[in-house]
Nucleic acid binder design. Structure first.
Lengths: 190, 190
DNA sequence: ATGTTTATTGTCCGAAATGACAAGATATTA
DNA sequence: TAATATCTTGTCATTTCGGACAATAAACAT
């Protein structure tokens, strides 16, 4: 009785194009025309299938956060804490263009409390999962520090600040997760 | 023979207003009208004293980076590495509104190679100064990790991800700087 | 006082982006 | 094939921002 709905696919195409534009020129400078050209569609179609600009941004956020969570679900169960933080270092913070879009989201969260909360929830979940894998005092704080180190290193890498030897970052994060570091400190100070 | 030049003071007022606007609503959404209102001056005066928008942004960047460097110069000479990283944690990443503007700069650096280089130079200098204070293998990489941890913790704090006990972050960064961690690791693994 | 440099005001223009919508085309089902 | 929901196109209005400039006021030196 009616033409078949292809809205879902169109939406997908548009969001892919939107993401490419955001990675290339930033969220603030990406216009509907940019997205339309990237998607090979006239601009009004973007409005028709997605809605206004806010709706498009919201859809992008949902898409990215969902993808981030899916990535964490790929973490093999039964991993050690060190394998988990290696996973975070090598997989989560690896893709450079994804990192750029994530940084765009981060920036957006500066003035968007709900987005900030969503980002916080994702990272907190990673921290909690790693914390559950380690022993010793303050597991949450130590996992926090390890993930913070991974985040900071990723941000620094984006700046062009290279670590001569990436293995040392892994070693440092492992060191933060080591269960009986206070024992080691006692040994060292003795 | 002429009216006295008050350009320097006006420039300062305008840049203070600009910074306040950027902290409040972000660089991209700060218009010349916003700055003019915040400064209590008509809009054309902003253009008269500063120039166009690019010039204003450039002036803000110079101002912030200069301030950042001045902050590092306040680090007492003869400090230990642990005092230095404490200084970074407690002083450099302390002021919340300054952090927001720094994050704006960081975001801007995503598409501005020269700004990216300037930011990198500042952080690299901090890393090098701390690296010079520690012994053992890979001093640069260990200093890199300690500063990355501080940066990541600051970014997480902005998200609202609180560390139950901030002292643990200090402890973790000290641990990364400890000179003979490989000896400790050997002891622990023995 | 007068001229000269600097500061201040008011106002306009053009570019660019978003939002809105009418009108036409297309595919499916009845 | 005809009705209808869906998709597509073309076009326009509004808003907002940045840039420019002429005209006026103020302060100081001579």
């Amino acid at each position: 009785m009616a033409r078949p709905r292809i809205g879902a696919e169109r939406r997908e195409e548009i969001l892919v194009a939107f993401e490419a534009c955001v990675a290339r020129k930033g969220l603030a400078k990406t216009t509907l025309v940019d997205v339309a050209e990237q998607a090979g569609q006239p601009r009004p179609l973007v409005r028709y299938f997605i809605g206004n600009r806010d709706a498009m941004v919201t859809a992008l956020i949902d898409r990215l956060l969902e993808r981030g969570e899916a990535q964490f679900r790929r973490l093999p169960i039964g991993s050690t804490a060190e394998q988990a933080i290696d996973f975070v270092l090598d997989q989560v913070f690896a893709d450079e263009t994804a990192n750029i879009v994530i940084m765009e989201l981060w920036h957006l969260s500066l003035r968007d409390a709900s987005l900030r909360a969503r980002l916080a929830a994702i990272y907190e979940r990673v921290i909690l999962e790693i914390a559950a894998l380690i022993d010793g005092p303050h597991p949450h704080d130590r996992a926090f520090c390890a993930v913070a180190l991974a985040l900071g290193a990723a941000f620094f890498r984006h700046l062009g600040l290279a670590v001569p030897n990436p293995a040392n970052v892994h070693g440092a994060s492992h060191r933060l997760l080591r269960s009986d570091f206070s024992a080691a400190d006692r040994i060292l100070s003795a």
